[in-house]
Design a protein around this nucleic acid. Structure first.
Lengths: 189, 189
DNA sequence: CAAAAAACTTAATCTATTCCAAGAAATGGT
DNA sequence: ACCATTTCTTGGAATAGATTAAGTTTTTTG
């Protein structure tokens, strides 16, 4: 929970009383590796702040193939936004890649909290702005680079992260098959 | 400009004095078809609200090929977010697809305006939230559907829009070549 | 209204990546 | 330590879509 406060204080000032309010309204949840926080078909009234560990958001297409759409490591928010905003059943799975902890931000208490701590409007605006900017850049890589280029680029940018996550998840995040990733690595060595 | 006020009032309340403030701080710019609002290498201290017409954000890769990353029709915000947030030179072009008008939101007066009209924090938060949700969905289509499926799906969802924009732009938005789009259409007929 | 420019089509060849299948290596639970 | 499960590798056949190049149609402009 402290991790979230620190993250918020990068963008806004929090008074002690704000922290008390937040501590009361939010809940911390510990997750074991591979545990699901959200499954397809379920409602998703939460936005998840990854306070420790690593989660991934993925969907399963009609051929049964998993596609990882986002990794969330500590300090990132992650959720199925359509289901969060619209209140419909989700089409995604949210899974802990590593044992860790997340803070649950509940849509149903959101309005009350935002009224009590108006600075949070600004916090979430800035968080969303930065994540939208990052997404725009990721999309550029996805559309402009070949699969192999994407892998090398990602591997150079986040070498430690590549070690942390199974290859098949990485492959599905980078937009190709695990077999192909295997071949890329073989080529290099 | 009125279009922007209406859009804001979908999410927040604006007092008359707020509108006066906004009218003074923002500028309206008319754009001719094909005119550029932003070119690669330039700074981009603006966020653009499309009040009438249609714009597109695209980049040109090192092979000289254009990739359309976003269309903005009336009622949407559009800009190179990295350049807007970070202040570095842009890697994108923003071009009017049709003659129309945009409202310029200037990053350099943003803080002052947000302080004078705090409700705008909420407005932009909600706009960003919805556009991030839409982006998440678009990414799913891009990664899960074949080019041909993407075309049919888009064509069914936005038949009027498909008529409004040149095919090569649509192809580059859907992630394939104009030649391939031509083939898809030939197959159907 | 003609000429130039822009947009679209068609066809042949080429290539990055998928798909399938089977085996090898690593990891995890008891 | 051992067995089951999960993850990774390898190779060959198949394919969606790119590339190239030339020709046709449509739109824009003087």
């Amino acid at each position: 929970m402290e991790a979230l406060f620190q993250h918020m204080e990068r963008y806004i000032k929090l008074r002690e009383e704000d922290k008390v309010l937040l501590s009361g309204a939010l809940s911390l949840r510990e997750v074991k590796k591979k545990e699901h926080l959200l499954e397809e078909g379920r409602l998703c009234p939460y936005n998840y702040f990854v306070s420790k560990g690593c989660c991934r958001l993925y969907y399963v297409n009609d051929k049964g193939i998993e596609h990882t759409v986002q990794f969330g490591i500590d300090g990132w928010w992650i959720t199925d936004l359509m289901a969060y905003v619209g209140g419909q059943p989700s089409g995604y799975y949210l899974q802990a890649v590593e044992t860790g902890a997340v803070v649950l931000w509940d849509r149903r208490t959101e309005d009350a909290l935002l009224q009590q701590i108006p600075a949070l409007e600004r916090y979430f605006r800035l968080v969303l702005l930065r994540s939208a900017a990052a997404e725009q850049q990721r999309n550029r890589y996805l559309s402009d680079f070949s699969g192999e280029e994407r892998y090398h680029h990602f591997n150079n940018s986040f070498p430690e992260f590549v070690q942390r996550v199974p290859q098949y998840m990485l492959a599905s995040y980078l937009g190709f098959t695990p077999e192909f990733l295997s071949k890329i690595r073989a080529r290099k060595a």
